[in-house]
Design a protein around this nucleic acid. Structure first.
Length: 270
DNA sequence: CATCGGACCTGTTAGC
DNA sequence: TGCTAACAGGTCCGAT
């Protein structure tokens, strides 16, 4: 479900409730999400103050005193901040209880999400190989051009590779390629520097604007306060296969690329 | 090393 | 109306 804008929307929603609070207790109703939840979460984290609520790629990082709790929402995960005593819903797998009577509740029907731990000074292996943040200065057309040379994979698959640049998933990859006028099937290694400049710019603009709009709510994404995202109204190609291109009217094409649904305009994207 | 397919799960929807 | 199959915003891992 969540790509970078949805994770950032979640971060901004939970931060004011968590910052400088102490974790009172970690309650695991399911000890296994995508991976087993490590013992530090129940044994070491309680009693510690949350010093920062950060995001790296699609991971949320609760910085505590001796290390970080790392959350990933997977495809269907979501977080809410609630008062103690709010009734459970199905798939409410974890509560991090705070010292003020509130709790952070993690819900994840498909359990593709994760709750992990890294000790201060260490970098969890899952975070070690990540590419630059798309809204940082490290990310640029040059960067995409350099890493893409010699690569035969479709440019859309390349753009969604978290080792190249983080945070871009299936929705925003399709939208970015449309706005940059690039055919998603094109081999990454055959896209010119000029066009990668346009693509990097499109990625930045779309992600930044999607954050402003509170992310994209297709079926079930809600911010921690229950508000939906409003970026869906801005989508030009994702989920619109067969419909008319909003720019030129040509019916949008679709196919699977790297096992992911892909939609594009055969006239606007070359 | 790059690339591909399968795997992990459950819920919703499209199609018969 | 009911059953089944396909598909969903992610990404790891092993095989090639």
């Amino acid at each position: 479900m969540p790509e970078l804008p949805e994770v950032e929307t979640t971060r901004r929603g939970i931060e004011p409730h968590l910052l400088h609070r102490r974790i009172a207790r970690a309650l695991l109703r399911r000890p296994d999400l995508r991976w087993p939840i490590p013992p530090e979460i129940t044994q070491e984290l309680p009693g510690q103050r949350i010093e920062a609520v950060e995001r790296r790629a699609k991971y949320l990082i609760l910085r505590a005193e001796t290390g970080d709790a790392i959350l990933h929402l997977g495809m269907s995960g979501s977080l809410r901040v609630l008062r103690a005593g709010v009734p459970l819903r199905t798939h409410d797998h974890v509560d991090l209880e705070l010292d003020d009577g509130q709790l952070l509740r993690f819900n994840d029907p498909r359990r593709f999400g994760a709750l992990l731990w890294q000790t201060r000074g260490q970098v969890h292996p899952l975070l070690a190989g990540l590419g630059p943040e798309p809204l940082s200065a490290e990310f640029s057309g040059e960067h995409l051009f350099r890493l893409s040379r010699g690569r035969a994979a479709p440019v859309k698959t390349f753009l969604m590779d978290q080792a190249i640049v983080v945070g871009v998933g299936n929705i925003y990859a399709a939208e970015s390629l449309f706005r940059a006028g690039i055919d998603p099937r094109r081999a990454a290694g055959k896209v010119s520097l000029v066009r990668y400049h346009a693509l990097a710019e499109a990625v930045r603009e779309i992600l930044a604007y999607a954050i402003v709009r509170g992310g994209t709510t297709l079926r079930d994404f809600l911010a921690p306060d229950g508000a939906p995202g409003y970026f869906e109204q801005e989508l030009l190609v994702y989920g619109r296969e067969g419909e008319a291109c909003k720019v030129c009217g040509t019916p949008l094409k679709h196919m699977a690329l790297g096992q992911r649904a892909t939609v594009w305009c055969p006239r606007c994207q070359r």
